[in-house]
Design a protein around this nucleic acid. Structure first.
Lengths: 227, 227
DNA sequence: CAAGGGGGTGACGAAGCTGTGACCGCCGAG
DNA sequence: CTCGGCGGTCACAGCTTCGTCACCCCCTTG
């Protein structure tokens, strides 16, 4: 069943959406504000987020950024604002679609189907929970890193970075991708974040941090984990 | 460079789109009707298709279906029709977005960026990810080159060049095409870029760089990868 | 309130990448 | 044969990017 998270503060509209989507066999959660939305997004792992930009507690674009910092779930924005700058800001923050109110339920559902269809095409990589190298061991499930028999403490940012690299063994991961996944930014001019935190990771995991064996730099493009 | 195929029969609108997109460094092809669009989509392998539903020769939804039969390239529909049934039909046929005329250029470009961004994360071509020769192996997905068991380090420019040649095995790729793709220039007087970087590629990949076996020069016209 | 950790910022030397021009060899035309 | 066009090779300078460090702010904790 496809799970949808509806983020909307107008209870009447929520009701209409929930009824229509449940009738089409979607599983629906609803959040009336940004804080609840972020919590529910983490807890329920929805397949799509439907987000009203006019929330009582947070700016809608900030909600998009916060979501994009953690997940790639499709985000459909609902908004009464028609200005093209608003649309561009939301889309560039990471939204997948922007629908202006009032909208027809048919159109909304069609756009929802289109968003879901896109993610279905992408087969998820079957997850191995344990990643071992000669130098260290990463347990993705337990969220634990061990090096030379000792537990290594990793900060949330470090872990997030490492997780992405390690789940794509041997593959080059672009700077852009890492920035979007970990920091939710799409700007190319923040690669210093990457440099600093990659250095930190190497210091904690590599035997010789200045000559890394597992966390490899690909100049100008990104990083790569070699298993 | 991101390649966009514009399918639109109104020459004035085509002109406006082409100017705006070229200014933002997109590579643009244009087709005035459905038949041309399908031909160009096959020939040029665009990264995005921008499709007007009101074409002189075919129904727009049929064009979407025909495209979807061959490729998963993002399709942005432009249309003067506002009816939600039209939108639902186009989206369900496989379109990724539906924009009603008149639209603002800002919004269009933002939706274009959103569509392109989605595909960047998901490297397509799941089938032909590995290119092998007697001398070396190229893994397009992992972005990795191996020769004689050793990883070969390629710079972004070298990789870009190689990728284009390797994805057109046996085919001649013109100097103009390579220059446009890698450097975004259309001048023919910059072939020295090609010479230098092709030499570099041969040095890294060929057993005997001065007598290349895989990266072949076609004097006066371009280069060719022989598999 | 102080201490400490996490994370962003800016500076700086080092390393890597890329365009440029000089030079050479090849080859066909005159 | 000479010449000119084309392509390959090389060294180098300028720029960009990288790793590292010191420093700051902010938040949490006690």
């Amino acid at each position: 069943m496809t799970r949808v998270l509806v983020v909307e503060d107008d209870p009447q509209l929520v009701r209409a959406l929930v009824i229509n989507m449940q009738a089409r066999r979607y599983g629906v959660d609803a959040a009336p504000d940004g804080a609840t939305a972020l919590r529910l997004a983490a807890a329920r792992q929805p397949d799509v987020v439907m987000l009203d930009l006019g929330l009582p507690d947070m700016d809608g674009v900030d909600v998009i950024r916060a979501l994009r910092g953690r997940t790639r779930v499709p985000i459909l924005v609902l908004s009464a604002r028609q200005a093209s700058e608003e649309k561009a800001a939301a889309l560039d923050a990471g939204a997948d679609d922007y629908i202006t109110k009032p909208f027809s339920m048919d159109e909304l559902l069609a756009r929802l189907r289109a968003a879901v269809r896109r993610t279905e095409d992408v087969p998820l990589v079957p997850g191995t929970t344990l990643v071992e190298t000669d130098g260290f061991t990463i347990d993705l499930l337990a969220r634990k890193a061990v090096r030379a028999g000792r537990d290594v403490r990793l900060t949330p940012t470090e872990w997030h970075l490492l997780e992405i690299l390690v789940t794509n063994p041997g593959r080059l991961v672009t700077q852009q991708h890492l920035l979007r996944e970990v920091w939710g930014v799409s700007q190319r001019d923040r690669t210093n974040y990457l440099r600093v935190h990659m250095a930190q990771l190497r210091r904690k995991l590599e035997a010789d941090p200045s000559h890394p064996r597992y966390l490899i730099t690909e100049p100008g493009t990104g990083y790569r984990f070699e298993g």
